[in-house]
C-alpha cells in the first residue's frame, strides 16, 4: 500500500529521495504501469512523482533530436519534429488514453513486452541522458542501460543524427489494442548497394527487447539479402516461448518474417528519415 506521495521539484531532489528511500519507493511518471492492476509488478510504500521533474520538450540541434523523458507517447505520435518511424512506434500503443498518460521514459524503464517504442529506439541508436544516484549525469546507449537493468532516472532520449538512415517498425497483435505478439524495428544506412550500420530489434521473443547483434554483423557491408535469407537467419537466433499469444514456432517464424519485411520496407522507403 502506498503511504507517501512525494512531489520533488528538481531532478536532484527526486534522485536523492530515491536513494534515501531505497527499497521502499519507486518513481512515478505517467502511472500506466504502477497504477494498473494488469501491469503492476511493484508494491512500493512510497512513490516519487516525476511530474515536476521531467522535461516534456522535443527539440532538435546539431546532435540530433532530444526528447524529454516526460513526453507522452501521444505527444511523440503527433510531433512534426519526430521521425515518422518513431511517431509510428509511439502509436503502436493503439489505446489513446494510455498514449495520453504513458511517458517515453516510463516506456523505456519498464522494458516489458508492452514497451512498444523500444525496438524503434534501439534501431535509432537512442542515447539516454541519466541522472545517477550520486547526483551525476551520464549518457549511455539504450541497450547498455537496459542490459544492466538500468535503475537511473531517465531524463531525456537523444536520437543521434544519422544521414541517410532508413528505418521501419511494425507490430503484429490479435486486435488493435492487444499487447503486441511481436514488435520489430529495423534500420540501416544504404551505401550504394551495401547495408551499413544495420540495427535490428525485436520485442516479444523474450521478456525484454532483444537486439539481433549477430544478424546485424552478418548484414554489415553486404547487399541487402532476400527476405527468405533474412527470415532464416533471424529464426535461427530467436528463442521465444509459447504463451497465450502463440506458439514458440509461430513467434519464431514471425520474428524472421517481420524483421525481413521491416528491412525491405525500410529499403523501399526513400525518405531520409534522420538526415
Amino acid at each position: 500500500m502506498i503511504r507517501e506521495f512525494h512531489t520533488p521539484r528538481t531532478v536532484d531532489a527526486a534522485v536523492a529521495l530515491r536513494t534515501e528511500l531505497a527499497g521502499k519507493a519507486c518513481y512515478l511518471a505517467g502511472g500506466t504501469e504502477l497504477g494498473s492492476t494488469a501491469f503492476r509488478t511493484e508494491s512500493p510504500q512510497e512513490v516519487i512523482s516525476l511530474a515536476q521533474v521531467l522535461s516534456t520538450a522535443i527539440s532538435a540541434d546539431d546532435g540530433g533530436l532530444l526528447l524529454g523523458a516526460g513526453c507522452t507517447l501521444q505527444t511523440i505520435s503527433v510531433s512534426e519534429n519526430v521521425p515518422k518511424v518513431l511517431r509510428d512506434a509511439a502509436k503502436l500503443v493503439a489505446n489513446r488514453n494510455i498514449r495520453n498518460m504513458a511517458t517515453l521514459g516510463g516506456n523505456i524503464a519498464s522494458n516489458k513486452t508492452f514497451a512498444s517504442m523500444l525496438p524503434a529506439l534501439v534501431v535509432f541508436d537512442a542515447q539516454l541522458e541519466l541522472a545517477d544516484a550520486g547526483g551525476g549525469r551520464s549518457t549511455v546507449g539504450i541497450m547498455t542501460y537496459l542490459g544492466r537493468g538500468g535503475r537511473e532516472l531517465i531524463l531525456a532520449v537523444r536520437i543521434p543524427k544519422k544521414p541517410g538512415r532508413r528505418a521501419s517498425t511494425a507490430k503484429l497483435s490479435k486486435s488493435a489494442n492487444d499487447i503486441a505478439t511481436l514488435v520489430v524495428a529495423a534500420s540501416y544506412v544504404p551505401d550504394n548497394d551495401r547495408v551499413r550500420e544495420p540495427r535490428l530489434a525485436v520485442e516479444g521473443v523474450a521478456d525484454h527487447v532483444v537486439q539481433l547483434d549477430s544478424i546485424e554483423a552478418w548484414l554489415e557491408g553486404s547487399p541487402l539479402p532476400s527476405r527468405d535469407a533474412i527470415t532464416d537467419r533471424v529464426s535461427d537466433v530467436v528463442t521465444p516461448k509459447t504463451s497465450i499469444k502463440g506458439s514458440a514456432e509461430f513467434k519464431t517464424y514471425l520474428a524472421g518474417t517481420m524483421i525481413a519485411d521491416a528491412l525491405h520496407r525500410a529499403a523501399a522507403d526513400t525518405r531520409k528519415v534522420n538526415a
Binding site: 502506498i2 512515478l28 497504477g35 494498473s36 494510455i98 495520453n100 498518460m101
Partner: peptide
C-alpha cells in the same frame, strides 16, 4: 482523456 482507475 485519461483513465482515472490507473491514476493516483
Amino acid at each position: 482523456l485519461v483513465n482515472t482507475c490507473i491514476l493516483l
